[in-house]
């Protein structure tokens, strides 16, 4: 991995974000929402509307509006929410931090379960244990989030009363209470990811187990444990990195349902609120923040991949 590659890669991230910013801005322009009407309400006088349009620069040519928006956005200023009047950027970043906390905990839990499970199933390929975990995984993959979430809610919060059903408490406020509130959303998200990642680990492990170099390692008389840990695991887990990076995208955009069910004010939920309120600055900021996070996550995955597999050379 050369510095040249790293620079080009960062340039690509910036380029991606720029393209996304154009798209985001263009789409919000096409939306049937008049910012002035949104701000002042249906009953505003034409004079008042004209004055607001003038103040917001809505009469400027579109490229100029984009330019103003972009230059402000680069300094972290995405404007003020049309719903609350508060600056949009801090609002979205706070929401993002909650979603990232959920994502991080889910990924950690998922890896802790999916990797051993996948390995275990692979080593018992075709036996009962493998078939049972496979069957359960398919159920996990096919159940929609809201079903999993509801089931967990009913059992853990309603019947057993072990956990609070909904809501969010910042970790800084009361750490243990905060974690208790996160358990159900994290479990819900993990179930789905465990299902597909463990299948992935399983099939990669089976491929590696059948490779010539694993046979060679066994025929060198190495202990089964060191064959598994030194030779199999590393090669089988490499492709999983890519999947986890893709999952980050899913976690940021696709868990709106989970955030909604558990009343967790993450980025997905904020976006929904912004879209229903036609809160253009919030939509723009939310979409862009998600794009940046996704681009950064996949770049990190590529770097991790290159560090672990020396055959991959980016130059």
């Amino acid at each position: 991995m050369s510095t040249g590659w790293l620079l080009r890669r960062l340039f690509l991230v910036a380029y991606t974000v720029l393209v996304v910013s154009v798209l985001v801005f263009a789409i919000t322009q096409v939306l049937p929402a008049d910012a002035a009407v949104t701000l002042l309400g249906e009953n505003a006088t034409p004079e008042a509307l004209a004055a607001v349009r003038d103040r917001l620069g809505l009469n400027d040519p579109i490229w100029l509006q984009y330019w103003h928006w972009l230059t402000a956005a680069l300094t972290g200023d995405f404007g003020h929410s049309m719903r609350t009047g508060q600056p949009v950027a801090p609002m979205m970043l706070t929401a993002l931090s909650r979603s990232l906390l959920l994502a991080l905990l889910s990924i950690l839990l998922m890896l802790a379960v999916a990797v051993p499970l996948g390995l275990w199933a692979a080593l018992r390929q075709g036996k009962a244990a493998d078939l049972v975990t496979g069957f359960i995984s398919y159920i996990g993959v096919s159940l929609p989030e809201f079903v999993t979430a509801t089931l967990l809610l009913i059992v853990l919060a309603d019947w057993l009363q072990w956990l609070p059903a909904t809501g969010y408490v910042p970790p800084g406020e009361d750490f243990w209470d905060s974690m208790a509130h996160l358990v159900l959303p994290v479990l819900t998200v993990s179930v789905i990811m465990v299902a597909h990642v463990s299948r992935m680990v399983r099939s990669e492990t089976i491929d590696v187990l059948h490779s010539d170099y694993i046979r060679a390692a066994r025929l060198k008389g190495l202990a089964p444990r060191s064959v598994l840990l030194r030779h199999v695991l590393r090669n089988a887990l490499l492709p999983v990195i890519t999947i986890v990076a893709l999952d980050v995208g899913y976690l940021l955009g696709g868990i709106i349902v989970v955030e909604e069910i558990f009343a967790l004010p993450g980025i997905g939920r904020q976006l929904i609120v912004a879209i229903t309120a036609r809160d253009l600055p919030a939509i723009q900021a939310g979409a862009l923040v998600m794009a940046v996070t996704y681009a950064v996550a996949s770049t990190l995955a590529d770097i991790a991949y290159a560090l672990l597999d020396r055959r991959i050379r980016y130059d």
């Binding site: 010539d212 170099y213 060679a216 025929l219 008389g221 030194r230 090669n235 597999d309």
Partner: peptide, 24 residues
Amino acid sequence: LQAVRGKRIGMVFQDPSTALNPTL
């Protein structure tokens, strides 16, 4: 068996590019 393989019987394989672990 582990005490025989690699210790009392060694083996040289057909294709060295697949018989060696690529990440080690």
